[in-house]
Write a protein that binds this DNA or RNA. Structure first.
Length: 169
DNA sequence: GCCAACGTTGGC
DNA sequence: GCCAACGTTGGC
């Protein structure tokens, strides 16, 4: 018991799935599927729990950055896209009986005014953030409580409460 | 277990 | 589109 709510940062290419897509989804909830990296998989399978907060990061766009916040609503379970030959992330090595890849479900919480990567780099409290470490490519990564506080304290989140309330369901 | 070759990520 | 940095694969 009692580990509290952990914080994560999850990357998505907005052309594939953006925070707007999450907000527009049924119940503002969607599966975080398609992850095909073992370290990220281990987080999804073992460590990401319902109630955990998620920073929704838009990658492979100019500029990249944090677009908002989500919350985990379902813990890790086998990712069915892995054994769907039609799917871009199909992996013939797994099966429903022997799943390799895992996913979680997340729900939209709020958007923020976009926080570009460049700006994150300038924040002293984020100096050691996994995202900012050279060569890091992890698409699911832990965020410390201090990092979370520093990011959530930025003015980009102003009015986000109102926005979140206004977009409820 | 080593490591070269190849594939992928993702900022720029 | 480029390319640095990683991750994975597979021969040995």
């Amino acid at each position: 018991m009692g580990r509290g709510r952990a914080c994560w940062l999850m990357k998505s290419e907005p052309g594939v799935f953006s925070i707007e897509n999450l907000q527009a989804a049924r119940n503002q909830t969607a599966g975080w599927d398609g992850v095909r990296n073992y370290q990220a998989r281990n987080f999804l399978r073992d460590d990401v729990k319902p109630g955990d907060r998620v920073l929704f990061y838009h990658s492979s766009v100019v500029p990249p950055g944090i677009a908002g916040e989500a919350v985990v609503v379902r813990e890790g379970y086998p990712d069915p896209t892995a054994w769907n030959p039609e799917h871009a992330q199909y992996d013939p090595n797994g099966s429903p009986e022997n799943p390799i890849w895992y996913m979680v479900d997340v729900r939209f919480v709020r958007s923020c005014r976009f926080i570009p990567l460049d700006r994150l780099r300038q924040i002293p409290e984020l100096k050691n953030m996994v995202l900012l470490r050279r060569g890091t490519r992890l698409s699911v990564q832990p965020v410390t409580a201090g990092e979370w506080r520093a990011i959530r304290g930025l003015p980009e989140w102003a009015n986000a409460e109102i926005q979140a309330a206004g977009t409820d369901r």
